[in-house]
Design a protein around this nucleic acid. Structure first.
Length: 299
DNA sequence: TGACAGGGGGTGT
DNA sequence: ACACCCCCTGTC
């Protein structure tokens, strides 16, 4: 009998060390919805067909363990898809923006994830008027009830059979809407159902959208039922590495009001301000601002 | 311990 | 401006 096993813990070749707070903010701060904190400070996460654990050693170096040997390369892309976060942050206008400067100082090496495009779309279609815990529940139920097991009978590692991937869009297209509702999706079930039909009828559409220039990709995403400006920008930021995407939600609205004096501004106005003020990496700036407000809310 | 309101990271009409 | 769903959280 083959024994279930995790690979030995290995260091991940990231440029810098990482604090526990930054690690938590990166994988469990609203970019992704499939990471669970575990006792002892590790995180267990899934994306695509990968399952991984992350841990920080006493020197704050990131280590990983996984169920498949090729997860290391995938993890590097997932976590480090945009290169050296410190160099990226340095290009933000922190020299003339004291608030941004203290956000960056408080969360050095905060990263924008590079998640699979399709599952990022699914996650943010679930996100309307929901908090992270609830979105995570929806994702977990979708994977558990409608996703294929990772690995197969001939898999070298039977432990993989205990984990499911998320259903693909093709798989979702044939799930009755009532069953989607059973996964706590509520009114989002109809959007997800209809989006799945749309994608299923257009082979290659999702891939072309991911590859398209930012403005065109955003227009295409917004044509999907249940996808507006905010969701489209989240998908492009967290699922396609488009750091110019600047999602405006009620938290950012409050932040910009409180820290930048934009009292009474509408979302479209704040989005325009954000792009002009923060520049081509506005989405990265947004993530720093968000991390700061979340930390403050916990105090 | 259990019931009960209140509100929630948005979109579509 | 309001409906859409219904789970989570805080409170009594």
């Amino acid at each position: 009998m083959t024994t279930a096993r995790w690979t030995p813990w290995q260091p991940l070749a990231l440029t810098h060390a990482l604090s526990a707070a930054v690690l938590a903010e990166t994988v469990d701060g609203g970019q992704a919805f499939r990471w669970q904190p575990e006792p002892g400070g590790t995180f267990l996460g899934q994306w695509d067909r990968h399952v991984a654990r992350l841990s920080l050693d006493p020197d704050a170096r990131l280590h990983w363990s996984a169920l498949a040997t090729d997860t290391g390369a995938a993890l590097l892309r997932y976590l480090d898809g945009n290169g050296d976060p410190r160099a990226l942050a340095d290009t933000l206008p922190w020299r003339s923006d004291a608030h941004l400067a203290r956000c960056i100082a408080a969360f050095p090496d905060l990263r924008i994830l590079r998640q699979p495009f399709g599952e990022t779309l699914l996650g943010f279609l679930c996100s309307a008027t929901k908090q992270i815990v609830q979105i995570k529940q929806m994702m977990a139920l979708l994977a558990e009830r409608h996703g294929a097991a990772i690995g197969d009978a001939g898999s070298p590692n039977p432990a993989l059979l205990r984990f499911n991937r998320l259903p693909t869009w093709a798989e979702i297209a044939v799930i009755p809407e009532a069953e989607l509702r059973g996964c706590l999706l509520g009114f989002r079930a109809r959007y997800i159902h209809e989006t799945a039909q749309f994608i299923a009828q257009r082979p290659g559409w999702l891939e072309e959208t991911e590859a398209a220039p930012y403005a065109e990709a955003k227009t295409r995403l917004i044509s999907l039922p249940g996808v507006g400006e905010k969701v489209a920008d989240c998908v492009l930021l967290f699922g396609a590495g488009r750091l110019e995407a600047f999602p405006v939600d009620v938290w950012i609205l409050k932040t910009m009001e409180r820290r930048y004096g934009l009292v009474g501004w509408k979302p479209a106005q704040v989005a325009q301000f954000g792009r002009a003020h923060f520049g081509p990496l506005a989405g990265l700036a947004q993530q720093y601002l968000f991390a700061w407000e979340r930390a403050e809310a916990r105090r």
